[in-house]
């Protein structure tokens, strides 16, 4: 426990880590601020203008003709399965079509800025985990530490645990803070959010916190092997630029199941739809459908497997390799 406390102290005392956490905080604030600004309540003037535009649209005789035509043959308008009752819903404009901004909808934020937040926090925690141990190697202080605590597995585990716990705290503060602010503002604006959406927000946030903290642990594990922060960052960059493109260029069906990004999205969003040109055409509402669903379980198994493999290699290398 003493060693873990020291490693936690070492982690939070690193200037590079502090800078990364600061950047993550600023970006979180920025995301929340833009989400709130883009959904700020419309002014009376904007509402009046929107109502006038709505009335003008409703008065258009072409609208009624379109609705009548749709009711005669709804499937020709909106594809198989459409009923005549849906025509008015689909064609008749509403006030929100004319106001300049949408209201704050937490369900939409989850799949937009909420996901962006998780990606940002995860990326920064990966770099933080990498720089935490990378600096130990580049400054040579790792050998000094091993002269005081020679049990390498203990040192490796304490550092990894410190990265994981610190990552959990940082990610939890940022993600929970982000959603807390948005929820409070939604309440203040009198916007009610369905329980289903609130559950989605909570679970997505929780899974986001887990993936961000585990990302930090992954960055740590890879850097123990490479011994250079820049090596881990370069590897990540190479994967983001080339690896994902390579996966999608493979001439195999469902190659996207091996994409890190797809599996991360499947984990964050409780499943993700992956488009694949190698799949046979399947008729759907919008024509030919070439996609499949990647489940939460698949994402969890893939990401967990990759992390465990990285940790195993990291531990083996750290246990056996000479330390300069």
């Amino acid at each position: 426990m003493r060693l873990l406390a020291v490693e936690l102290d070492r982690y939070r005392s690193r200037r590079a880590v502090a800078m990364l956490v600061l950047v993550a905080t600023l970006l979180t604030v920025l995301l929340a601020a833009t989400a709130l600004w883009d959904t700020r309540p419309v002014s009376w003037a904007e509402r009046a203008r929107a109502e006038a535009q709505l009335q003008q649209a409703l008065d258009d005789p072409q609208l009624q003709e379109d609705v009548d035509d749709c009711r005669d043959n709804p499937e020709a308008f909106f594809g198989p399965g459409t009923t005549s009752e849906q025509c008015a819903d689909f064609l008749v404009p509403r006030l929100e079509n004319f106001v300049p901004r949408a209201t704050l909808d937490l369900g939409k934020v989850v799949h937009g800025r909420g996901t962006a937040l998780i990606v940002i926090v995860t990326s920064l925690l990966v770099i933080a985990g990498a720089t935490f141990v990378g600096a130990d190697f580049t400054t040579g202080s790792m050998s000094n530490q091993l002269l005081f605590v020679p049990r390498r597995t203990t040192v490796w585990a304490a550092k990894g645990l410190a990265v994981l716990l610190s990552g959990l705290v940082v990610a939890a503060v940022l993600v929970v803070g982000f959603w807390a602010v948005l929820s409070l503002v939604a309440d203040a604006r009198g916007i009610s959010t369905p329980d289903r959406v609130l559950w989605d927000v909570r679970w997505t946030a929780l899974r986001g916190i887990v993936i961000a903290a585990c990302g930090g642990l992954g960055g740590y594990a890879v850097t123990v092997v490479l011994r250079r922060t820049v090596g881990t960052v370069a590897l990540l960059f190479a994967y983001v630029v080339g690896g994902e493109a390579l996966v999608f260029a493979l001439p195999f069906q469902r190659a996207g199941e091996w994409s890190l990004a797809n599996n991360a999205l499947a984990w964050i969003h409780d499943g993700a739809r992956v488009f694949d040109d190698n799949l046979p055409c399947r008729p759907g509402l919008a024509g030919c459908q070439r996609s499949y669903e990647l489940s939460l379980g698949h994402g969890a198994a893939y990401l967990g497997g990759v992390l465990l493999l990285a940790l195993l290699v990291s531990w083996l290398v750290f246990s056996r390799r000479d330390v300069a």
Binding site: R2, L3, A5, V6, D9, R10, S13, R14, R15, A135, D136, T139, G140, S141, S143, N144, Q145, F148, V149
Partner: peptide, 19 residues
């Protein structure tokens, strides 16, 4: 070999505390 951004005292404390 010590961490350049830490003070001399901090470097020693981090080595001493685990023991």
């Amino acid at each position: 070999k010590f961490v350049p951004t830490f003070s001399g005292r901090k470097n020693l404390q981090l080595l001493a505390r685990p023991l």
